[in-house]
């Protein structure tokens, strides 16, 4: 059967063991890439001709923003799998995503604001990207708030999953509405970061960091999923067997 791998992944004991084995394979490369990327970004990359050294915030802002969005998409897809195929481990994945995504959304907002101050002269600008990040944070908070509102894990899983799917459908709509809204009220004097051609020496650290953050997310997810599985399967026999064995 070609789908056996999928069915095996859906089995909590199998995924638990797999996650435990895989974690170091993601965690260590992630650590190396992130530390190397940050060093390259801070030291090796040449200063920008327009923004000077200030542009170096890009190396923490863009990976955080990337995480906030990628984690939301992962969460929505896992939630859809969980809701459609009634798969417990998919719900465990979706539940594990939310706090990770929310924390990186906060990081993206703070670094965006710290970037905005020297570039725009104010701590906050209703720029489409910052605004979208802020809305994304509320979507994460709604998801976590809804889950926290249920005592029963299964109902929290299914209700949260539906919200995550609705959010996933809405994210592009919200994003383009915000861009449309912003294009109407654009003050002409505001400095825009368009899509300049970034020279390779500046781009390479960014790509390294994007990969590093992604692997970091995978490692975090593997650890958190194990905790979620343990909590969901607390009555299952395999747990005491695994723990004692």
């Amino acid at each position: 059967m070609r789908w056996t791998w999928f069915h095996r992944l859906a089995s909590p004991p199998y995924l638990y063991g797999l996650a435990a084995r895989l974690t170091p394979w993601f965690a260590w490369p992630a650590a190396l890439l992130i530390l190397g990327g940050l060093f390259a970004g801070l030291v090796l990359a040449p200063p920008d001709y327009q923004q000077g050294e200030g542009f170096r915030i890009i190396y923490v802002h863009v990976p955080s923003a990337w995480m906030s969005l990628m984690v939301y998409v992962t969460m929505g897809l896992a939630a859809a799998v969980g809701l459609i195929w009634r798969m417990k481990v998919a719900h465990a994945i979706a539940a594990s995503c939310a706090p990770i995504g929310a924390s990186f959304t906060v990081a993206a907002l703070v670094t965006g604001s710290l970037w905005g101050k020297p570039m725009w002269g104010t701590w906050w600008v209703w720029d489409p990207r910052l605004t979208s990040e802020l809305i994304l944070l509320f979507l994460y908070l709604g998801f976590m708030g809804l889950r926290a509102g249920f005592d029963d894990t299964q109902r929290a899983d299914r209700a949260g999953a539906l919200l995550a799917i609705v959010g996933l459908v809405n994210v592009p709509i919200i994003h383009y509405s915000v861009i449309w809204w912003n294009s109407l009220h654009q003050a002409p004097s505001v400095l825009r970061f368009g899509k300049p051609t970034i020279p390779g020496a500046m781009l390479a650290p960014l790509l390294i960091l994007l990969l590093g953050f992604t692997l970091f997310f995978a490692a975090l997810l593997l650890v958190r999923v194990r905790a979620e599985i343990l909590q969901r399967e607390r009555t299952a026999r395999w747990i005491s067997e695994t723990l004692s064995g």
């Binding site: 809305i135 509320f138 979507l139 908070l141 709604g142 708030g145 809804l146 509102g149 919200l163 609705v166 959010g167 809405n170 709509i173 919200i174 509405s177 915000v178």
Partner: peptide, 12 residues
């Protein structure tokens, strides 16, 4: 919570 769930989705 109802506000937190609905308002972001109705922003467009």
């Amino acid at each position: 919570l109802l506000a937190l769930l609905t308002l972001p989705l109705s922003l467009p």
